[in-house]
């Protein structure tokens, strides 16, 4: 049973688009200050959880990779711009990120698999997604005044550039193959 939980924990770490989006969101939330941290954590946790649970009942046969990467890029750019954002766009961004990560983490449908194995896998994904964002946000919170916030802006630029690179590779994969 623990194997399934660990596999779920590793899932966002092994998916570049998920990782970029969660890191970008963490940077942006940390940059906004401690007041944004609590609601965003709760919103992300809930939205990933609900999206993951929804995949148990119905599943979208959509490729969400592009949406995840575009969302990561926009979030990274917002961190670069270092705007003081009102709470609601941040919350909307948190919901969008959580839903995208959750829907793209659909549990594998293996005929005959019973018990709570799939639930453990999804629980691992929900926990790890929230923790990645939280740890990144806490680090960003500590670094947000360092060199007048330039460190976070540089990291945000790297994430946006990384998202654009992966997006370009993803969209050109057929031509490159």
């Amino acid at each position: 049973m623990m194997e399934f939980f660990i596999q779920g924990v590793l899932h966002p770490l092994l998916m570049p688009a998920h990782l970029l989006l969660l890191l970008a969101l963490g940077l942006l939330v940390g940059q906004q200050g401690v007041g944004a941290l609590k609601p965003l954590c709760a919103v992300l946790l809930l939205s990933v959880l609900l999206a993951c649970v929804s995949t148990l009942h119905w599943r979208l046969r959509l490729d969400l990779e592009v949406a995840l990467l575009v969302c990561a890029m926009v979030t990274g750019v917002l961190a670069v711009l270092r705007l003081e954002l009102p709470r609601w766009p941040l919350i909307l961004l948190g919901i969008l990120a959580g839903v995208l990560v959750g829907l793209d983490s659909a549990a594998p449908r293996i005929p005959g698999l019973r018990g709570h194995k799939i639930h453990m896998l999804l629980a691992g994904t929900v926990l790890s997604s929230t923790l990645i964002m939280l740890i990144c946000a806490l680090l960003a919170l500590m670094l947000r005044h360092l060199l007048e916030g330039i460190v976070i802006r540089v990291l945000g630029a790297w994430i946006a550039a990384g998202a654009i690179l992966v997006l370009a590779l993803y969209l050109l994969r057929d031509r490159l193959a």
Partner: peptide, 22 residues
Amino acid sequence: FCGLALSGLLCIGTASAGGVHY
């Protein structure tokens, strides 16, 4: 160098990423 390293890592990540397959 950093850009190349990052894109390389991301390519490796994309290639090795995956859920349960059997």
